[in-house]
């Protein structure tokens, strides 16, 4: 239940502005890939093109190919709705649906597109997903309470439970810990390690220690200056990126000399 992603010659635009230029990258199935780089370098923008979420922003479009096990996401006739049900996303700030209970939040994606689910199946899926997100023990007694009553870290894990409940092939995470305290961050990082056994995980992070802790491979993005497009500078095993990078800019960045 996980697929690889191959990106070929991808340019990302907002209207006429070229935001990310010429990215080529292969993301292995059942691995954790981290995107690092300074603010504004286009790593989040690029991440959003992997499940066509950047199209939500007016003027967002791409040139090039993104292949999910060989199927191009951007081929004419491909419905972004289908793409997103296969490639889930966890956002920077926890965003459970405020009007729904914890249980309904987990089931929100499952009930989409007119799908029906029996009560007992729903209950077991809720438990499985919440256990999968290491949240079950904390919320099992208040599944009917609103999700917005949880702490930030719990809310983020609820969002992860909601994402894995639809059984996606890939999970994209856009700085999932940047709004969380260190303990909650640790819980999410442990979770990412567990998710790897079932899903392909791609994570954008500002925290280089986090990239080093959780990822198998790391991609470093950089930008030449304001108004210039972001580029993929180097992509290699995480150990290589952090100990022996081949590009000077990567070394400067991971050693904290700029950025």
């Amino acid at each position: 239940m996980s697929k690889r992603i191959d990106v070929k010659d991808l340019n990302v635009y907002y209207s006429k502005f070229l935001a990310v230029e010429d990215v080529n990258i292969e993301i292995e199935a059942k691995s954790v890939t981290a995107f690092i780089g300074p603010s504004g370098c286009g790593k989040s923008t690029f991440l959003r093109t992997l499940n066509r979420m950047h199209e939500v922003i007016p003027g967002g479009r791409v040139e090039g190919e993104v292949l999910l096990d060989g199927d191009n996401l951007y081929e004419p006739g491909v419905d972004p709705v289908t793409v997103r049900s296969q490639i889930g996303m966890v956002f920077q700030r926890p965003n459970p649906f405020p009007t729904m209970s914890i249980k309904d939040n987990v089931l929100a994606g499952v009930k989409l597109n007119g799908k029906k689910i029996s009560r007992s199946d729903a209950d077991s899926l809720v438990e499985k997903s919440l256990r999968g997100a290491n949240l079950w023990n904390e919320v099992k007694d208040r599944l009917d309470k609103p999700g917005s009553g949880l702490s930030g870290g719990q809310q983020q894990r609820l969002c992860i439970a909601r994402t894995i409940a639809v059984k996606p092939q890939v999970i994209l995470m856009d700085e999932p810990c940047s709004a969380l305290d260190p303990i909650s961050t640790l819980a999410i990082e442990d979770l990412i390690n567990e998710l790897k056994s079932e899903f392909t995980v791609v994570i954008v992070t500002h925290n280089m220690q986090q990239a080093a802790r959780v990822s198998d491979k790391t991609a470093f993005f950089n930008i030449a200056g304001t108004g210039k497009p972001g580029k993929l500078i180097e992509y290699a095993d995480t150990a290589t990126i952090f100990s022996n990078p081949s590009v000077k800019a990567t070394e400067d960045y991971v050693s904290g000399r700029f950025g």
């Binding site: 997103r84 956002f91 965003n95 649906f97 989409l112």
Partner: peptide, 10 residues
């Protein structure tokens, strides 16, 4: 919240 729904495949 809108993106949360869209990202689930809504």
């Amino acid at each position: 919240h809108e993106e949360a729904a869209l990202a689930l495949g809504a």
